[in-house]
Each structure stands twice: as C-alpha cells, then as structure tokens.
Design a binder for these strands. Sequence first.
DNA 1: AAGGTGACCGGCC
DNA 2: TGGCCGGCCACCT
Length: 114
Amino acid sequence: MKHDSSLPELSFFERVYQVARQIPLGKVTSYGAIAKAIGSAQSARMVGYAMNASHALPDVPAHRVVNRNGLLTGKHHFQGTSLMQQLLENEGITVVNNQIVAFEKHFWQPEIQR
DNA sequence: AAGGTGACCGGCC
DNA sequence: TGGCCGGCCACCT
C-alpha cells in the first residue's frame, strides 16, 4: 500500500547546508563533523563537494568549514588568495599558514540531525 | 551510460 | 614523521 504521507527526503546536499547554516559566527566546524551530524560519517568528501556547490546559495557560511586539523583546505575555492582567511579573521579567528590558531577553542560541534 | 574525480577521514603500516 | 587505502556518493565527461 501507499503510505506516502512522508515528507520528501532532503537530499544529501540539502542536509549538509542545513547544518552549515547553523554554524555560529566566529565558530568553525569540519567536513567530517557535518558528515557525522547528518548520519553519514564516512562521507566527509561529499561534504566538501557540497560546499563547492554552495557557492551561489545564501546563508551558507562555507568559510567556517575546514578540515579536521583546522587547515583551510578549501581556500582555493574562494575568490582571491586569502578571502577565506579574511572572512574568518573578520569574525575574530586567527589564521597562520592556512591553519586556525587555537582550533579547538573555536570548534563548533553540530548537533545530530534527525 | 560507466567510470573518474573530489574543499575528507580514520586506520594502518 | 609521512604516505597509502578504502569508504562514501553526486557531478562531470
């Protein structure tokens, strides 16, 4: 039978964006943490892919997503050579050699989505 | 239309 | 210390 009252499932990308939009100003998280939060812990790579596609979307703070070591691995996907770093520094985060200083202190742990 | 390719991560030498 | 590998899955030829 048709029990089709279920809501349309959000796509993988949409779930990524849903989490990313929650990252508070002045905080950062990692690709892997987002992957885990949407129940797809081993798909960190796809999170990176999704961030790449988030370019045009409003309210997706892609600059607040870095790799597990606090390295700005996505910086080359922003315009200019240091835009990502500057956006972060505007929010009070210090970056040296593409690495966030006191990373743990700024890390924001996404809540598990359900 | 099948296969290569990632803004990754954890595990393993 | 550093490199490789497998897993994941949407895009792009």
